[in-house]
């Protein structure tokens, strides 16, 4: 874990340690190829299946000194140092100026400060807009010129247009499951991205992830993964979203800390997932079936 207390400007943050990531398919190759071609990427998948971790991992991976030459025979990618990585969690009140920047009042007048997107564009960072559909429609339109051949960010209030630095890549994530029908991604937006779908890992893979991330032994983590698989069967039948790998890892960590498995699963899975008593009870029964 990174040492605490370090304060960085948004564009200075880099992923310096290799994050743990277990590839589930060809997503790494896809992302690398997209990055080389500067094609924006849309990551689709349920909550907690590892989208953010994947982007972090890719940011670290792409920030490594590149040894291979890309197909076109061009020079190695631009930088030697780690690649800046800007994450913006989108919420329903996120406005365009939250992304681009705004005037702040100063003793002598106003002062402009760049928003995270502007900074990423200027420094050539990987900019990750998490849960992009949550944001207002006007923000999603804002990224349009950035995501086609133009790679431009117009800053209306300054009357400027910023050209994206070479390393800039926009990655957005989107969870088709739980958003209401109203909050679908507009087609004009979604057709600017290649789309990589994430699903839950298989039982064995998930067990490996849980075991690695939480430190519990594989036998326990396979049980946790089994629980995850069973609970996900309940999706759309009382549960709007299946249990995330993240939650299973939390449960694993609790077990690792000496909490009884049934109890850990209860607080980490059952209660975390739903408030519906009936569904809770059902999950509880699955838990008590799996754990002794």
């Amino acid at each position: 874990m990174a040492p605490g207390g370090l304060v960085l400007a948004a564009e200075e943050f880099t992923v310096r340690e290799e994050p743990y990531y277990l590839p589930l398919g060809d997503e790494i190759e896809l992302f690398e190829a997209a990055f080389e071609q500067r094609i924006p990427v849309l990551l689709k998948g349920p909550t907690g299946c590892g989208k953010t971790r994947f982007v972090e991992y890719m940011s670290w991976r792409l920030g490594r000194p590149m040894t291979h030459i890309s197909q076109g025979g061009e020079a190695p990618l631009d930088d030697e140092g780690p690649r800046p990585f800007v994450t913006v969690a989108c919420h329903e009140d996120l406005t365009a100026s939250d992304l681009v920047g705004r005037y702040l009042l100063d003793t002598d007048g106003t002062r402009w400060i760049d928003g995270p997107l502007t900074r990423a564009v200027k420094t050539g960072a990987i900019c990750y807009l998490d849960e992009v559909v949550e944001a207002r429609k006007d923000t999603t339109v804002l990224i349009h010129p950035l995501t086609d051949y133009r790679r431009l960010l117009p800053i209306e209030k300054l009357g400027q247009v910023v050209e994206a630095a070479d390393g800039f890549l926009l990655v957005i994530s989107y969870n088709p499951g739980y958003q209401s029908a109203l909050k679908d991604l507009k087609h004009s937006t979604r057709q600017r991205f290649i789309s990589v779908e994430f699903t839950y890992p298989t039982r064995e893979q998930e067990a490996e992830i849980i075991s690695h991330e939480s430190g519990v032994d594989l036998a326990v983590s396979i049980e946790l993964a089994k629980l995850g698989e069973k609970v996900r069967n309940l999706k759309e039948h009382g549960l709007s979203e299946g249990v995330s790998t993240r939650l299973l890892i939390y449960a694993g960590r609790l077990i690792e800390r000496g909490i009884e498995p049934r109890r850990a699963a209860q607080v980490g899975v059952t209660w975390a997932l739903t408030d519906d008593l009936e569904v809770q009870r059902s999950i509880e029964e699955v838990v008590t079936s799996i754990f002794e």
Partner: peptide, 8 residues
């Protein structure tokens, strides 16, 4: 409860 359990 059993229905959801069996479904799971």
């Amino acid at each position: 409860v059993l229905r959801l359990y069996a479904k799971a």
